Every structure is written in C-alpha cells, then in structure tokens.
Computed example of a mutant assay.
Amino acid sequence: MTRLFGSTLVALTLLSGGALAAERTVRLTVENMTCETCPIVVRQSLKAVPGVGYVKVSMAEKSAVVTFDDAKATVAALVEATTKTGFPSAQQQ
C-alpha cells in the first residue's frame, strides 16, 4: 500500500510539472540605453514576460539581471521582449 501511494505521488508530481520547473537568473547586456527612462522601459518589457519575478536594470552597466521560472519563460523570450521595445539584448556568458 505504501509503495502504491509513493508511486502515485511521484507520478502526480511529474505530471504537474512541479519537478521540472526551476528558478533561474541570467544577466543580459542591453544596448541603446541613453537616458533615465530607458531602464524603466527595459524593466517593464521584461516584467511583462510570463514567469519573470525579479528584474534589476542598470543603465551604467548596460545590463539587466532577471530571475524567472524556466518552465514559463526562456532567455530567448527575454531577449525578444527587450529587442521589441528598441533595446537589443543578449545573455552574458
């Protein structure tokens, strides 16, 4: 009976995707930030991506640090979001 319950619990966890999701943090280099409002626009574009939790944008460093749920968002989606608003970005290696 215990073995059946354990197997069922594992199966439900895998089916729900809970075991596959992970929080991830990346740093993006961001181009074209030239004024005080640019980081605000970049931050808003990144926060609009589903799964994004934390965003910190630095105009001085021309970068953005983004924490996101990798089951809901991808680095490609983050790059696309900033690029569509006029701020091309790329993941720093």
Rank of each mutant, 00 (worst) to 15 (best):
R3G: 03
R3V: 14
F5H: 09
F5N: 10
F5V: 15
A11N: 08
L12M: 13
T13D: 10
L14Y: 09
L15A: 14
L20G: 11
A22R: 14
E23C: 01
R24S: 03
V26Y: 06
R27W: 01
L28W: 02
T29R: 10
T29M: 06
N32T: 08
N32F: 07
T34Y: 12
T37I: 07
I40D: 09
I40Q: 14
V41C: 06
V42W: 11
S45P: 11
S45M: 09
L46N: 04
K47Q: 15
K47M: 15
A48M: 09
V49Q: 03
G51M: 02
V52L: 05
Y54A: 00
Y54G: 00
V57W: 05
S58A: 07
M59W: 03
K62G: 05
A64G: 09
V65T: 15
V66Q: 04
T67D: 00
D70W: 12
D70M: 08
V75K: 08
A77K: 13
V79N: 04
V79A: 02
V79I: 15
V79F: 04
E80C: 00
E80F: 00
K84C: 03
T85A: 15
T85N: 06
F87G: 01
F87S: 01
A90W: 03
A90F: 04
Q91A: 11
